[in-house]
């Protein structure tokens, strides 16, 4: 995984959070994790194919997921229902689309599967048994995690 790959996602997260939620995002200390587990209340998984292959997993705690949708809709939410989970899926999908556009500037042409939304903690996500990078992120409405596993397609088989 190269810094450019990670950065494309981080920059897209910052840009879309500002645009859609009017929130600044701060990055914490990156760390390597052995496997990708959906450990938060609302998780969104993006599958990447093409010149880079892998997965990006966003995990939001419940209070933050509800607050994000409240900021966008102006309506108070009290549970992670289809409206909330679909809205989170859409936000992550837009972030992924932006990140892939910026990766294409580095000549990495990738596609993205529709986001998969996993509600509920500790469901295992089957994927390559490679280590992934965990990026802890913080906003004024809460902390969330993004797990990134991306490999150059020519290096895996």
């Amino acid at each position: 995984m190269k810094v450019d790959h990670i950065n494309a996602f981080y920059v897209a997260i910052q840009e879309i959070f500002k645009l859609m939620l009017d929130l600044d995002v701060e990055k914490g200390e990156l760390r390597i994790v052995e496997d990708m587990v959906s450990s938060k209340d609302a998780n969104v998984l993006l599958g990447i194919t093409g010149d880079l292959k892998g997965s990006i997993l966003f995990g939001f705690p419940k209070h933050m997921a509800l607050e994000m949708v409240n900021i966008m809709s102006g309506v108070d939410m009290d549970e992670i229902d289809t409206f909330v989970s679909s809205a989170l899926g859409e936000v992550v999908n837009i972030i992924g689309g932006n990140a892939l556009t910026s990766l294409s500037n580095y000549d990495y042409i990738c596609n993205m599967a529709p986001p998969q939304i996993i509600v509920g903690k500790y469901k295992s996500i089957s994927m390559a048994s490679e280590r992934s990078l965990l990026i802890p992120l913080e906003t004024e409405i809460g902390k969330f995690d993004v797990n990134v596993f991306l490999a150059e397609a020519k290096n895996i088989n």
Binding site: M20, S73, S86, G89, V91, I94
Partner: peptide, 22 residues
Amino acid sequence: SEETMQELAARFMTWLIMHVGR
């Protein structure tokens, strides 16, 4: 169905925010 209407509401909301915002 309630679920499809919720999905459409979410799609509409995020699309409109992005479209008007950008």
